[in-house]
Amino acid sequence: MRAPDTDDILLQVERVALSFGGVKALRDVSFNIRKGEIRAIIGPNGAGKTSMLNVINGFYRPNHGAITFKGRTRAKMQPFEAARGGIARTFQNVALFKGMSALDNIMAGRTLKVRCGVLWQLLRFGPALAEEVEHRRKVEEIIDFLEIETIRKVPVGRLPYGLQKRVELGRALAMEPDLLLLDEPMAGMNLEEKEDMSRFIMDVNNHFGTTIALIEHDMAVVMDLSDRVAVLDHGVKIADGTPDEVKRSQTVIDAYLGIAH
């Protein structure tokens, strides 16, 4: 694992609050993500973990607070800006383009890297074709990496769940992100699939140096994979630190197991 540089903060979330009507999903949550680390966000159901990711990549608009990404501070992110800035994302319940093949899904992830204009694409000739081949080569590298060669031309709607999750990770990787947000990448998987996915996540972090923020419920996975863990409960950050620190925190144990009265 790449040693995280303590001074190098990629993303800083400051006092972000988000509410839906009367429900307070996030209450003044602050935390940061360092360049090159694997950062886990955990918490019981309804703690506001997914809301946090949605705020980070601009899908939700926080009521107040600030997000500093790559040195630029904003009150909120725009989804398009977040994508262009290098934030990629996978979803809790797979959000693939169902009618398209696995290959096309991952190719779609290259959208922001496409340089040729529509007129060239129309002719699909010369530089346009060369560029398309180049993107295909990059995408094939990802396909190799994720070991999904055999299903590249299958419409993703027909794939089993575990493979869909992998294709979704591939689509996010195709964006060559600086920050990868994974929302429960291992939900609903069996042990073997979880091991595969953990390996992919660690390899992404090692080989590409991608910073990863992940939400996961499997504590064994979280404790093994992550460099630092933030714990949310009812929209409040109740703990933050290395896996060992978090494991020993009495507040965290109480949040998960309840307090004896």
Binding site: F80, F91, L96, G99, M100
Partner: peptide, 19 residues
């Protein structure tokens, strides 16, 4: 691919940088 992405899942499309 951008068109089909918008057709199949517009939210995910937006988050991978499709306007």
């Amino acid at each position: 691919r951008q068109w089909m992405a918008i057709r199949d899942m517009d939210i995910a499309a937006e988050l991978i940088g499709i306007r």
